[in-house]
Computed example of a mutant assay.
Amino acid sequence: MKKESRTVIFDNELNIEAYSFKGVMQKFPNHFHKHFVIGFIEKGERKLSCLNKEYIVGSGDITIFNPYDVHTCEQINELPLEYRCLNVSEEIMEKNIINITEIKEKINFSPTVITNLYLSSLIKELHSLITKKSREFRKEEIFILILEYLVKYHSIPFENNYSVKQSENIKRVCEFLEKNFDKNISLDTLTSLTDFSKYHLLRSFTKETGITPYGYLETVRIEKAKNFLEKGVSPAETAFLTGFSDQSHFSNFFKKFIGLTPKQYQNIFINKNKSLEETNE
């Protein structure tokens, strides 16, 4: 079997992450991110589910996930996955879109799966330049070209995105989970925030968000954990701060969602800070 490889690099000039997975057979559970993910599949086939739609994706396909787009994917054959992606925060995306459109507006992208040779070649080139730690302005140029293409052909108004259409009951539950992610929460507590029964809450929440209440809590905990790790908090302390029972449970859970161990993820930002220090010397 081909050896598995997982690498992540943070680009200090563009302020984006570049992921590369090779030889991966892992199934990723139902989850969402709080950033944009622009991905490209080089090899392998996967069954992808996003926002209640299912896709079979493979070599040459581009995948776009907006913040809070709930998605999951798994292997459908014995060919391991080779995948590259760029993770772009909402802040960086908005800043660049304003430069392109000269209009301050929040937008999302659609559809989830795109096949376009021009766009895929740009994504591959940019990923390669980031991996090589290039400082040439070609890197920024390609990033702008990618976003320009997406804005021109695949942008939709933010309010039209499926993932932001929620009832007041479900919004209250989401807000509660976001604020109390480190606590032991009961289904009774969540139900008391609504005029639903437990069954109706589970059904309505899953229908509106694409994920169960507990799945939503799990994802929030992982996103919060990423923030702590980025700030240099130890994995053990991060596990405690995000409501996990122990560090082992946290580490296994983190890798299931992110594809990296907490320490591997934290090392990205240790290296980032070292690079910044070297630049300032």
Score class of each variant (00 low, 15 high):
residue 187 L to C: 01
residue 135 R to S: 15
residue 211 I to E: 00
residue 141 E to Y: 11
residue 142 I to Q: 08
residue 227 N to M: 08
residue 209 T to C: 01
residue 149 Y to D: 03
residue 150 L to I: 07
residue 131 T to C: 10
residue 170 I to T: 13
residue 259 G to I: 12
residue 250 F to E: 12
residue 218 E to H: 06
residue 231 K to N: 13
residue 165 K to S: 05
residue 269 F to P: 00
residue 169 N to M: 06
residue 250 F to K: 14
residue 274 K to D: 10
residue 145 L to E: 12
residue 153 Y to K: 14
residue 206 T to P: 00
residue 156 I to T: 08
residue 274 K to E: 12
residue 231 K to G: 07
residue 129 L to R: 14
residue 264 Q to L: 05
residue 263 K to E: 14
residue 259 G to H: 05
residue 226 K to N: 04
residue 221 R to Q: 12
residue 245 S to Y: 03
residue 259 G to Y: 05
residue 186 S to K: 01
residue 254 F to H: 01
residue 237 E to Q: 14
residue 227 N to C: 01
residue 188 D to V: 14
residue 251 S to Q: 04
residue 216 Y to W: 13
residue 170 I to Y: 07
residue 173 V to I: 09
residue 197 S to C: 02
residue 238 T to M: 09
residue 216 Y to G: 03
residue 258 I to S: 05
residue 263 K to P: 01
residue 142 I to S: 08
residue 265 Y to P: 00
residue 234 S to T: 15
residue 235 P to H: 11
residue 228 F to S: 02
residue 262 P to W: 13
residue 257 F to H: 11
residue 198 K to G: 00
residue 187 L to T: 12
residue 245 S to W: 02
residue 132 K to T: 13
residue 140 E to C: 09
residue 246 D to Y: 06
residue 166 Q to Y: 15
residue 186 S to F: 02
residue 141 E to D: 07
residue 138 R to C: 04
residue 220 V to E: 00
residue 224 K to G: 01
residue 164 V to P: 02
residue 135 R to T: 15
residue 185 I to K: 12
residue 147 L to I: 15
residue 152 K to D: 11
residue 266 Q to T: 00
residue 139 K to L: 02
residue 161 N to Y: 11
residue 250 F to R: 14
residue 140 E to P: 03
residue 191 T to V: 14
residue 137 F to C: 08
residue 173 V to Y: 08
